[in-house]
Design a protein around this nucleic acid. Sequence first.
DNA 1: TATTGTTATACTCTATAACTATA
DNA 2: TATAGTTATAGAGTATAACAATA
Lengths: 159, 159
Amino acid sequence: MSFTEHRALGRTLWETTQVVNRAFERTLAEVGGSRAVWFIFLALAAQEHATQRDLAATVGITEATLTHHLNALELRALVTRTRDERDRRIQRIEFTEEGRAAFERILAAATAFNRRLVTAVGGDLDTLYAALDRLAAAADADHEAVPSPLAETHHDIGL
Amino acid sequence: MSFTEHRALGRTLWETTQVVNRAFERTLAEVGGSRAVWFIFLALAAQEHATQRDLAATVGITEATLTHHLNALELRALVTRTRDERDRRIQRIEFTEEGRAAFERILAAATAFNRRLVTAVGGDLDTLYAALDRLAAAADADHEAVPSPLAETHHDIGL
DNA sequence: TATTGTTATACTCTATAACTATA
DNA sequence: TATAGTTATAGAGTATAACAATA
């Protein structure tokens, strides 16, 4: 029974992502991570952010949400926050030794997971990326005002 | 700067879905809907569920979560719940007149949105579906115990 | 005044476990 | 005992608005 003349592309995309994401979250949970933490860690390791605002934008969340996550990470002693000497408004966020180790574990798990996905897709990878980019562009078409997270590093950072 | 030898397939998939989903949620919100409500409405309209348990499985959520959503829908007078005469454990869920009208509005919005996505992808639709299916299968490979939601109606129902 | 980040609060979606009603 | 569904509770992730500290 179908309610539309087209197949359910948005829904298929949603469900595929749900399945993939749940598997990914399970994988990360096994090494003490989560998707949100993984994205934040990657952005931290890349060291391409000047402020928490930048970092939040890179991760694709608000500043308040980032603070929320950083609080948890600091509580777990995985990162430290120290005020910048020259501009005390700015927090400098750094991995602790333990945090760096956690990052390495999560990186290994995420890399292995990604490799599995890439292998599954086979040779059509560029075609898939092109299709996904067209989907995102089409969805955003009505709403240029809303910035798409990580647009500039799209595809360039580990999973 | 890249931390993996492969491009970030899982992440690209995630971000694409985020962008598409956010646009979809905005579209639905304009007609008083949400993704969860839309999925539930579709399952209701299809009338292929015997119990709430079935319905929850079709939508891909737990019974408790479904109850949560049905409470909200009943409060908004979009659905009614009546006990089955022959087995009073069973709730029969039906659209109210208003609920049916809401469904029609949401259907129209979702169909238009889906058409936009399909148009954007162009002629590669089957290739894209195949790639997405391979991704879901690969992600699930480690975790056969976890049932993927809507496996049987995959692709067969409106967005 | 503008910027950086935090706090307070709340919302949505989700789940688990204990429970009630019915069979 | 088993099944259908609800309630109570909680947790993760997210956001907005008001705020404090600093520039």
